[in-house]
Amino acid sequence: MRWLLAALLCVMPLVAMAKEAAPLADDPALEQRVMKLSSELRCLVCQNQSLADSHADLAIDLRNQVRDQMRAGKSDAEIKDWLTQRYGDFVLYRTPLKSGTWLLWFGPFLLLIGGVAGLLLYMKRRRALVASSELTPQEHARVQALLAAGEGASIAAQPRNAAPGRR
């Protein structure tokens, strides 16, 4: 058994070596460019994956197309145009800025501005409330009267009609 294991261990590096040599592509730089561009493109079959990640048939075909066009000297922008002509802007993960996507691009900023405006308004109102929370002379007199009424008297039983506040 031990001999068998030793023999197996001797053979294993050979097997490992045999697997190592296969290169992914004949042109690693081109392959990197293909992967970089296709990671920015959506696979239409499995919509939550990029073209680079997807193993769908169409994704493989489209990657091949991208590779062929890169070999033919096309720029990334030209390849993107080629794809959007066929599949629409949907293939692009970076949505182009145009009239239809205006809300998508600026909607979050509008919400932010709205939120900040609401917050400022609220703070301004609150500041006004704090400023007005000083006791009026009448209230002051009443507090004094209550205090003077003695420790034993039940303050809670007093009517609260003159209480300041928001409500």
Binding site: L44, R86, Y87
Partner: peptide
């Protein structure tokens, strides 16, 4: 056979 025309027509499903 190779699906090239399909790509030109934007076929995906």
């Amino acid at each position: 056979l190779d699906g090239k025309v399909g790509i030109d027509y934007g076929v995906y499903g």
